[in-house]
Design a protein around this nucleic acid. Structure first.
Length: 430
DNA sequence: TCTGGGGTCCTAGGACCC
DNA sequence: TCTGGGGTCCTAGGACCC
């Protein structure tokens, strides 16, 4: 059996941990730059607020209906979900973190346990120790466990823990869940199935297997098998990433090449740092830039360029320099840019670098490596972006006169304090 | 005026090989 | 008038996930 443990409305719940006055009230969390709604409390969902809706279109409604909005605060969410995950890890024989707010547990060896009780106790423990509400689905396959968690969230009677352990319960669940709510069936295939009259998961598994395979692909076929109780999605231990991307939308349109260079330098430096974080090197660097696709009144341009490195690398200097070369090739004057990003690819372990016959200078390589290590250490101990390359800094902040760094350049007017990680953030209480 | 940021896997088609 | 048959590798695009 597998269990999926999933934080309810994760980001909203994180905000509520330190704002219990907001329990029972409509709350949303916004994307970077306070752009779109990315998380909603149940009360916000009930008001018809959809995920992905732009904030500026909702302002009026929010003030009328007293919806509380937060800018996203990933430092806080990472910290709180980490605490939840530690408790899950202790409670299960084997544990695999699937995303920021979800973990799968393999319950092999717990045949003699009352799994319903196990789940209810785990939820209670997490709630008491972290104030984070979770839902738990338990079933013979991961897809069925996801289905169970759908019911655990939806119906109060389950008390946030739903166990599917008999054929009867399974059939009932499959008959009740709409096919496009099944894990692995997205919008496109959901629409296509519904157009064929396949409305529920039960309808879906009633289709012949080879027909599913022919109409779609092996992934959809695997979902079909999983829903019929065949365990076929392997539990992967987290692998090093094959591509690493850092990209942002800008709060305002960017026209000047110099400003774009600053941003791209920051994205590239982030990518290099993420590479070092997973002990990897990359062989290629891609830069992309886009104008604002919503502004049909402005000329549109988007482009990307990929440059290969002669020797795989993870040094900030090398990745930044390569990214700036790429930007130089695709940049066109006269457009208003809204988004840019850097992707590093062809990733391998930093332990076994294939050196290059022509340009490889081991002394320089070592020097850069030592410098990066030193910077990483300072930034780890003193806070990220304590020391950066000169060309990573934005112009001075008009109010404070201080040079702005990457994290300052994103709008987050409604950000909550980093209660758990920065003392200076915590509001004074009388 | 204001619309997010990451990832993975699969497949079809083209280029190339003999 | 007639013009083969088998592979592999790479890439772009589309689907999915959170």
């Amino acid at each position: 059996m597998y269990a999926i443990v999933d934080c309810d409305n994760c980001y909203v719940s994180c905000e509520r941990v330190f704002r219990p006055d907001l329990n029972g009230k409509p709350v949303v969390v916004l994307s970077n730059n306070d752009g779109c709604v990315v998380a909603r409390s149940n009360e916000a969902k009930a008001l018809g607020i959809k995920a992905g809706m732009p904030y500026y279109q909702l302002r009026q409604q929010f003030s009328e209906e007293q919806v509380v909005a937060f800018s996203s605060n990933y430092e806080l969410y990472a910290e709180l979900t980490g605490r939840v995950m530690n408790i899950v890890k202790e409670a299960a024989p084997s544990f695999y973190r699937y995303s920021i707010d979800e973990a799968f547990c393999d319950l092999r060896g717990m045949q003699n346990h009352d799994l319903q009780q196990w789940g209810l106790r785990l939820r209670e423990n997490i709630l008491v120790q972290t104030a984070m509400p979770v839902s738990i689905g338990i079933a013979p396959t991961k897809t069925l466990a996801k289905t169970a968690s759908h019911f655990a969230k939806k119906y109060k009677g389950y008390k946030h823990c739903c166990l599917i352990d008999t054929e009867e319960k399974c059939n009932k669940a499959l008959q009740l869940i709409p096919v496009d709510d099944v894990w692995g069936i997205g919008r496109r295939i959901g629409e296509s199935l519904k157009a064929r009259g396949v409305m529920t998961a039960w309808d879906f598994i009633s289709l012949p297997r080879d027909r599913v395979r022919r109409m779609y692909n092996v992934s959809v076929e695997r979902t079909w098998k999983e829903l019929r109780g065949e365990d076929c999605i392997p539990t992967e231990q987290p692998q090093p990433k094959q591509t690493i991307c850092t990209s942002r939308s800008f709060p305002n349109n960017v026209k000047e090449k110099k400003d774009l260079e600053t941003s791209v330098s920051n994205f590239a430096a982030r990518c290099a740092s993420k590479l070092r974080g997973q002990h990897s090197v990359a062989e290629e660097v891609t830069v992309f830039i886009d104008t604002n696709r919503f502004r049909s009144d402005l000329p549109q341009y988007s482009n990307a360029y990929t440059q290969k490195l002669l020797t795989a690398d993870n040094s900030t200097q090398v990745i930044v320099q390569t990214a700036l070369n790429c930007l130089n090739i695709i940049f066109r004057q006269g457009y208003e840019y809204k988004r840019a990003g850097v992707i590093v690819g062809i990733i391998s372990s930093a332990d076994s670098i294939q050196t290059n016959l022509f340009d490889y200078d081991s002394e320089q390589y070592e020097k850069r490596h030592r410098l990066d290590n030193a910077l990483d250490k300072i930034n780890r101990l003193q806070g990220s972006e304590t020391v950066v390359l000169a060309n990573q800094q934005y112009a001075k902040d008009k109010k404070t006169g201080k040079a702005m760094v990457f994290t300052d350049s994103i709008r987050h007017d409604l950000r909550s304090p980093n209660y758990t990680t920065r003392w200076s953030d915590i509001p004074k209480v009388n």
